[in-house]
């Protein structure tokens, strides 16, 4: 499969996430759109790892066979960081709901009170 298809698919998913962050006011939906953007980047990294695998393999047969594994390790670490981020972010949203009884981000436009 040509790599452009994957790049364009990931770009469309990323832009859908950006539009979601811009047009929604619910903090949880905005957070979910950020997860969508992270996942589009993950998909692109995996596609690039398979592309790099075949280009490096064609050039030099003596290279080790796990030539593209680094990208997949990066995806693994992105998932690790996303899990930690979600736990802290949802705790912040719950605390915000406890204070203002809403998840509307427009209530956060002032830091005081």
């Amino acid at each position: 499969m040509p790599i452009q298809y994957y790049i364009i698919l990931a770009a469309v998913l990323f832009c859908i996430g950006v539009v979601g962050v811009l047009i929604r006011r619910n903090a949880i939906i905005i957070f979910m759109c950020i997860e969508l953007m992270l996942n589009s980047v993950n998909l692109l990294l995996v596609a690039f790892s398979k592309m790099h695998y075949v280009t490096a393999g064609n050039d030099n047969k003596s290279l080790p066979l796990n030539i593209g594994s680094d990208a997949q390790i990066f995806v693994f670490f992105i998932m690790v960081v996303a899990a930690a981020e979600v736990s802290v972010g949802l705790a912040i949203i719950v605390m915000m709901y406890r204070n203002v009884h809403s998840t509307d981000v427009n209530f956060l436009n002032r830091l005081k009170n």
Partner: peptide, 24 residues
Amino acid sequence: EISKSQAVMNEGDIGLIQNIGKVL
């Protein structure tokens, strides 16, 4: 540069648990 690049499908074992675990 990327117009002729292909993402190889259905083959290659870099995504298997054995190789990922070794690198990790």
